[in-house]
Design a binder for these strands. Structure first.
Lengths: 224, 224
DNA sequence: TAGATTGTTAATCGATTAACAATC
DNA sequence: TAGATTGTTAATCGATTAACAATC
């Protein structure tokens, strides 16, 4: 019953877990010790049954009539996500997006610590952004191994994505957060998660488009 | 049969459509006139049946023994997504991320044209990034209306997200692309799509974590 | 005890996948 | 015609939701 926990947890559940951390931290600040699934659900626009199902996955039991222990829940979720102790990460590609991510202070909360950026542009190498140095990509593998960095954030141009991913894998990177529009072929021994802006924009613009040009031919209905 | 097409299309399908555009454009360059569902599937790591189901949604029929007409397919998908004629957009919040997005040239392909950025920081107002001006947020509503801009990209700090979203709605913005970690309450008359970095990172780091600390207690199994 | 809330088991819903007839 | 590929109808799978017994 405990053995295959990580693997059997639904992906949508994992994606929702950070939201729980958010409202639970607020609850902690308010001095609440317990919080009910219906309270959390209301705060997040979900159903209480879904909250209970999600929390089942992280293995914290609630108390009937009382709710779930707030502090324990935060700890358990962060542990489940691997956010309990900060992981170092390298940014691969010091373009605008790479620099923006390197400067985002919110990652600290997610246990992500960006250590340095890497680029192949001699003009950029040696510069500092947000107190983090831009290093020569030639030094990537060596530094990743010596500093035991196993997370890389991929922000190179689309054309360079595949090559950069291979470099990362050879450098012993275990988890690659891919911000490029390139869908990479699976690489043995490396987990890849992509932030797919095109997919997100597709949802937005198709919805917008169906509002602006109201579908097709509901007209007869109205006319009749 | 044609009436409620937009509404009934599955969200996962919509999210996959941009990938098809990508490989179809490559096929066009290669001079291919038709392409089979199994070809597309192979290129994208999907099953051919899923490709056929997805393409059914955009309303382009294939020919048995021949495949799908490439050019027609691109046109139909772009039309479906509202990418057939470029839409202007404002960036709300000229921080690092806002500037990075304003400079991203890839959006042109998605029919998205970023016109200007807005901020409330007097030091930033008047500056230009990537040829686009940073304007006073006080002018946002007026300009959105006069220029008929109905897409906004939200890149303000988390604390300012709710207020900025309200401003956008009042300015007549119809579609808001939310890059902040704040989950906004639904706003009447405005479509909101969020790029949830925390959710994406949660997937990556939970997978990584289950690799680094290999689950729990499969051990007895191995020992026995 | 009474009653609110959890947690379990079953039902529903939606998306993916399979099977195969229709088609060119 | 023969055969590859589409498109339809049914089966499967997984996630969400509902119902309700267990619990404090």
């Amino acid at each position: 019953m405990t053995g295959d926990r990580q693997i059997s947890v639904a992906l949508p559940t994992i994606r929702r877990l950070p939201m729980y951390v958010g409202i639970l931290e607020k609850a902690v600040q308010d001095g609440q010790v317990h919080v009910s699934s219906s309270h959390m659900a209301a705060a997040l626009g979900l159903e209480s049954i879904q909250v209970r199902k999600d929390l089942e996955a992280v293995g914290v039991a609630g108390q009937p009539r009382v709710g779930f222990p707030v502090a324990e829940l935060v700890t358990a979720i962060e542990r489940f996500l691997g956010w309990d102790n900060a992981s170092d990460a390298f940014v691969l590609g010091a373009g605008h997006l790479g620099m923006a991510l390197a400067g985002y202070r919110g990652f600290a909360r997610y246990g992500l610590n960006i250590v340095a950026l890497f680029d192949n542009d001699p003009c950029k190498i040696g510069q500092k952004v947000h107190g983090k140095e831009i290093l020569d990509v030639a030094r990537f593998a060596d530094l990743a191994e010596r500093l035991h960095v196993h997370i890389a954030i991929l922000t190179v141009p689309a054309e360079a994505a595949a090559e950069a991913a291979t470099l990362a894998a050879q450098a012993g990177i275990k988890a690659l957060w891919n911000f490029t529009p390139t869908k990479l072929a699976p690489i043995e021994g490396m987990i890849v998660e992509r932030v797919d802006l095109a997919a997100s924009l597709a949802v937005l613009s198709s919805k917008l488009s169906s509002v602006l040009r109201p579908a097709h031919s509901e007209v007869p209905e109205e006319a009749a």
